[in-house]
């Protein structure tokens, strides 16, 4: 009886540690991976020497001064007002190009705030005016 029992036992590969190995690799990948951090506001720059002339009536200039104030024309606007104003102008003129002129010493945060408002107002044509070195 005892002899018979020994033959019955099936050959087996030990799989108990497989899980451990696999989890070790998981931990490695988890610590080295970055979850899509890549997000932001997309834009395309004009090619050098390919500047296009635009009729002045199709340009809406938005200025940001060194104090971080946003101006359209001579009027100082708050950030949320920019969206409404730009949306309104876009309704009037579909060809409108928005020129964003930011002072060198203006905070980057304000520029992004304005840029964000332009994106939210569905402005397609945004031009970032280069500012010269002082």
């Amino acid at each position: 009886m005892e002899f018979k029992e020994k033959i019955k036992r099936k050959p087996a590969i030990p799989t108990a540690s497989m899980g451990d190995i696999a989890f070790l690799i998981i931990i490695f990948f988890m610590t080295t991976s970055i979850f899509s951090r890549e997000k932001g506001l997309k834009t395309v720059l004009p090619e050098k020497g390919q500047e296009v002339k635009i009729k002045s009536e199709n340009i809406l200039t938005i200025q940001v001064n060194p104090r971080g104030e946003v101006l359209i024309g001579d009027k100082i606007l708050t950030i949320p007002e920019v969206r409404a104003k730009v949306a309104e102008e876009l309704l009037k003129n579909k060809e409108l190009v928005i020129a964003l002129r930011v002072a060198r010493t203006a905070p980057y945060r304000t520029m992004i705030d304005v840029f964000d408002e332009l994106k939210m107002a569905k402005a397609e044509r945004i031009s970032l005016m280069p500012v010269k070195e002082e």
Partner: peptide, 22 residues
């Protein structure tokens, strides 16, 4: 300062890299 960002954008234009994300 925005001026620094502007300089980087100009440098990217010189390099021919035109697709930008902030």
């Amino acid at each position: 300062e925005y001026g620094k960002v502007n300089d980087i954008l100009e440098a990217l234009k010189d390099a021919g890299v035109l697709k930008i994300t902030f």
